[in-house]
Design a protein around this nucleic acid. Structure first.
Lengths: 146, 146
DNA sequence: CCAAATCCGACTAAATTACTTGGGATTTAC
DNA sequence: GTAAATCCCAAGTAATTTAGTCGGATTTGG
């Protein structure tokens, strides 16, 4: 049930972006990679996915970088994780987009269990916004930089 | 967040065992493997872990097999998954046994998120027993065999 | 003794993960 | 108009994990 670095790094990067989105300046990927200690090129790939999903905007060229595509309180962590990880389902048969169904789908006991786990995860990640995480961060860290 | 076959097969096998535990006869692994369509040798490894964790008992020799070590309503799915998967935490820093802590543990925002996800998963899997799954199964399938 | 079983440890193929490498396209500052 | 900054894109790759296989030793009921 472990998230891959895609999910973990990607969410971190987005919180970083949210924290530095006060100014209207786009944030270059290098800054995020340095602050979060993530390989720059690898992070680039993750953000590419988020951009294609419409969650971040990019500005090319010098002084360019990335910005959130929507306000931090309009982006839920669930959307990030689903984009980054492909799916957050514990089993393929309960995946949100492409539910691979086994033959015995109708009378599979464990499937109900996977559904309950999936629902439970979704209820958490769909209720937490980037703004919530920023607030939490500021509460914990006061004036310190990330 | 996908469970591996260890977790999925293991839980299936335990539900199977619970379903066939009415008789006091131990159930040979071959029967479970056939019914659940799992490689016999592979399942053997999974059950070995469950046995070491005290969740199943074995009877060696001819007419031997496996039995639940406790009543089905005393075994929660969470114990199975933790044994089978090692941990069900979404990130190592919130793992139940060996919480690998990063330096910035104290002021890590995402950690709080992983904790919430972890708690949410645990609340589900720790509240569902094998008996619950057997009941659900019987409700769905009536007289049919598994 | 023999067949049915568990037990045990090593080996392996395939897939996935977590990157790296190398370059190209676009924009801005000077 | 050139250099620097930056995003964009596609391949390649090393390490790890997954999902098994294989071969045999041990135990036990009949």
């Amino acid at each position: 049930m472990r998230l891959s670095t895609k999910g973990r790094y990607g969410v971190k990067a987005m919180v970083d972006l949210a924290l530095h989105s006060g100014d209207e300046q786009p944030v270059p990927i290098k800054d995020i990679a340095d602050r979060q200690e993530i390989s720059e090129h690898y992070l680039e790939q993750l953000i590419a996915g988020l951009r294609k999903a419409g969650l971040v905007k990019s500005v090319r060229g010098a002084q360019g970088g990335y910005m959130l595509a929507q306000a931090p309180d309009a982006i839920v962590v669930g959307d990030l994780l689903r984009t980054l990880e492909g799916t957050i389902a514990p089993a393929d048969c309960v995946a949100e987009d492409k539910p691979v169904n086994c033959e015995r789908a109708d009378n599979c006991v464990t499937r109900i269990l996977w559904e309950k786990i999936h629902d439970s995860i979704n209820s958490v990640v769909n209720s937490i916004t980037l703004q919530d995480m920023v607030n939490e961060y500021k509460r914990l860290n006061g004036q310190e930089s990330m």
